[in-house]
Design a protein around this nucleic acid. Structure first.
Length: 266
DNA sequence: ATGACTGTCTTTGACAGA
């Protein structure tokens, strides 16, 4: 079963690319980030006609997360499910989760998340990002355990390690690669989450999911690995392979992010 | 060279993104 995550940077601009991608890859589940439309403005019909159930939470012109699934959700979570919600007013535009039931796995939770960017470093917004990540860990502690089958995928806006950026010296303490962000991301993993790509390819260099629109960054493969698929231990031996699908980043009028796909044996 | 790109709205410039 193939699942994926893709920050599309506007579903209005990228709708046809997502349709094409879904048809070509026959994805079972796709998590989408940065739809940039209100909840009710999501073009659900385009994906329903391809056989997907559609779940979306968005905001006016920004944020917005969706899950497209071949299986109907049994439960849906939007945002932090009440945990310190007053401190994180945009959480419902950044976190969506569904519980589905599969033949060999009767309870699987899947999340599509879009962590705040946090730029500029040391601004109020930067500290909001750090607190958002920390609250996400608390949200997991309250609602799940490390033994729950969980797939948390999306744009975390953090490159965890030096091999996850094209040049750690140039980018050191730049947004998405500061010590503080990397520490909080590690703390999130300490809940019991595994970075699926590093489970399969612990040392492989040059794997990125985002490239700046400027500076011919994609042609030079000057990117960062900001989009992740995190899984709990019960799913580790079910992961067959995981990779970044770079092709859509080379299409005309691309998103600045490429999809990450994972193949599971469910 | 405080640049370079892209998408959105307060739209014909400002801003956010990463």
């Amino acid at each position: 079963m193939l699942i994926g995550t893709w920050n599309v940077n506007s579903i209005k601009i990228r709708r046809e690319q997502v349709e094409k991608f879904l048809s070509e890859k026959n994805l079972y589940i796709l998590g989408i980030q940065e739809t940039k439309v209100r909840t009710e403005e999501f073009p659900g019909f385009s994906f329903k006609k391809l056989g997907y159930e559609v779940y979306h939470q968005g905001g006016k012109g920004r944020n917005g997360v969706a899950l497209l699934s071949k299986t109907k959700a049994e439960e849906i979570i939007a945002g932090f499910k009440g945990l310190k919600e007053e401190d994180f007013p945009d959480a419902k535009e950044r976190i969506i989760g569904i519980k589905i039931s599969l033949k060999n796995l009767k309870e699987l939770w899947i999340f599509s998340v879009y962590i705040p960017n946090g730029s500029p470093v040391s601004s109020d917004y930067y500290f909001y990002k750090l607190q958002f990540l920390w609250n996400f860990r608390e949200f997991l502690e309250v609602n799940f355990s490390k033994d729950t089958p969980l797939i948390i995928m999306g744009d975390f806006n953090v490159a965890p390690e030096e091999i996850d950026v094209y040049d750690p010296e140039i980018l050191r303490e730049n947004i998405c690669f500061t010590e503080r962000e990397r520490k909080v991301f590690k703390a999130l993993l300490d809940f019991g989450l595994i970075d699926a790509l590093r489970l399969k390819y612990p040392d492989k260099k040059g794997i990125f999911t985002w490239w700046d629109y400027q500076f011919f960054a994609f042609n030079k493969n000057q990117g960062m690995r900001l989009d992740h698929i995190l899984i709990t231990e019960p799913l580790a031996d079910k992961l067959k392979d995981i990779w970044v699908e770079k092709t859509p980043r080379g299409w005309k009028k691309p998103s600045d992010h490429a999809p990450v796909l994972a193949e599971f044996k469910f």
